[in-house]
Deep mutational scan, measured.
Amino acid sequence: TEYKLVVVGAGGVGKSALTIQLIQNHFVDEYDPTIEDSYRKQVVIDGETCLLDILDTAGQEEYSAMRDQYMRTGEGFLCVFAINNTKSFEDIHQYREQIKRVKDSDDVPMVLVGNKCDLAARTVESRQAQDLARSYGIPYIETSAKTRQGVEDAFYTLVREIRQH
């Protein structure tokens, strides 16, 4: 089974770092803004072998026109913010609204991801993020692309959301 996953969120929150940590098991430290990259990885989730087709997208506003296209083809979405960047957390709402509009559905598989949880300088409390996820009816997972904490959990949870859909 193949799953088309799309990673969305503001610029600099760590979308590529999360994806590369999942696929290649290493942490990319330097920031190089993405336009669009796709990665494929075969994994076993709950005993089922599946192929993850992951689209890593641009957070930069100037590429926002490309969003409709990949939102149409994606089956599930990782909505990523950084726990030390309140603005990126506030941006999640717009991504969710755009996904709902493009998919013409209120019920699209999504996982809210709070990345950079290895950093002490948190400005978005776990509780705020949990409340937001609960209001959307989606899971919330904290990750660190640096330490790998929660990385597999985030992507695998999204696959489970798609399966249950």
Rank of each mutant, 00 (worst) to 15 (best):
V159M: 15
D118C: 14
F155D: 09
M110S: 03
S144R: 15
D37L: 00
P109C: 05
E97Y: 05
A17R: 04
E30Q: 00
T147N: 13
Q42G: 05
Q164R: 11
A121I: 12
K4N: 09
M71K: 13
I83A: 13
Q164K: 06
Q69I: 05
F77Y: 10
I99Y: 02
Y140C: 11
Q128C: 05
D53H: 00
G76F: 15
I141L: 10
N115K: 14
A121H: 14
Q149S: 09
E97P: 06
E152D: 09
R72Q: 06
D37S: 01
G76Q: 02
A145G: 15
V159K: 15
R101H: 04
A65E: 03
E142D: 06
R127A: 15
T143L: 15
Q94A: 10
V151C: 10
S126C: 10
S105W: 08
K15L: 00
E142R: 11
K116E: 15
G11H: 15
K4Y: 05
I54E: 01
Y156D: 13
P33E: 14
T34S: 01
Q69C: 11
C79H: 09
C79T: 04
N25R: 03
G150P: 14
D53C: 02
T123P: 12
T49F: 04
L55Q: 05
D91G: 06
L5S: 01
L18N: 03
R163P: 11
L18E: 04
G47I: 12
V8K: 09
L158S: 04
C79F: 12
V113I: 07
V113E: 10
L22T: 15
L119P: 15
I83P: 14
E152R: 12
T147E: 15
K146M: 14
I20K: 00
G74V: 10
M66E: 14
Y31A: 04
R148P: 12
T73C: 10
M110L: 03
G150N: 11
M110R: 01
P139D: 13
E90R: 05
A120R: 08
L52N: 07
F27Y: 03
V102D: 03
D32Y: 04
L5G: 00
I35W: 14
Q60N: 15
F27P: 03
R67S: 14
Q94M: 10
V44H: 07
L22K: 15
Y156C: 14
E97G: 05
L51Q: 09
Q60W: 15
D107A: 04
F77V: 03
E61G: 14
I138M: 10
N115Y: 05
V111K: 04
I99V: 04
I92L: 07
I54L: 05
A121Y: 04
H93W: 07
N25L: 04
S135A: 13
Y140H: 08
A58S: 15
M66P: 14
L78C: 04
T49V: 05
K100Q: 02
D68P: 03
P109I: 00
I20Q: 00
P109H: 08
M71L: 07
R148F: 13
Y156Q: 14
D32T: 11
F27R: 01
I20L: 01
Q42H: 09
T34L: 00
V111S: 08
K146A: 14
L158M: 08
V159N: 05
I141S: 10
T34F: 00
R40Y: 01
V13P: 10
T19Q: 13
D29V: 04
G47L: 03
E36F: 04
V151H: 13
A145S: 15
V6L: 08
G47M: 01
R122M: 13
V108F: 04
L5H: 01
V7Q: 04
Y95W: 05
Y31S: 07
R122I: 08
T147K: 09
Y140M: 12
V44D: 08
Y31K: 00
Y63A: 15
S144A: 15
G11L: 15
S144C: 15
F89Y: 08
T157F: 13
V80Y: 05
R134D: 10
L158W: 13
D56V: 02
T157D: 09
V43C: 03
F81L: 03
E36I: 00
T86P: 08
C117K: 11
A133V: 08
S126Y: 10
T57Y: 12
A129P: 08
V124Y: 11
D53Q: 03
V124A: 13
L119W: 14
T123Y: 04
V159R: 09
K87A: 03
D104R: 03
A65T: 10
V151I: 14
L112W: 13
Q60K: 15
T147W: 14
Q164G: 11
A154M: 15
V113K: 07
A129F: 14
M71W: 11
T143N: 14
L132T: 12
A121T: 09
E90V: 07
R160C: 13
G74Y: 06
A120Q: 11
Q42V: 02
D153V: 11
Y70M: 15
E161L: 11
E97A: 07
V8A: 02
D37Y: 02
Y31G: 02
R101W: 07
A121K: 13
A154E: 09
R163M: 08
V108H: 02
V80T: 05
G74S: 03
D46M: 02
E90M: 01
V113A: 12
E30A: 08
N85A: 04
N85P: 02
M66W: 10
D56W: 05
A65Y: 07
Y70N: 09
T86M: 13
R96D: 00
E161A: 13
H165F: 13
Q21D: 15
T86R: 04
D46V: 10
A82I: 00
T123G: 11
G12N: 15
P33S: 11
V111R: 07
I141C: 11
D106E: 07
R96Y: 00
R72D: 10
S135N: 12
G114S: 11
A121D: 09
T123S: 07
P33H: 06
E30R: 07
V43I: 08
I162H: 04
N85H: 01
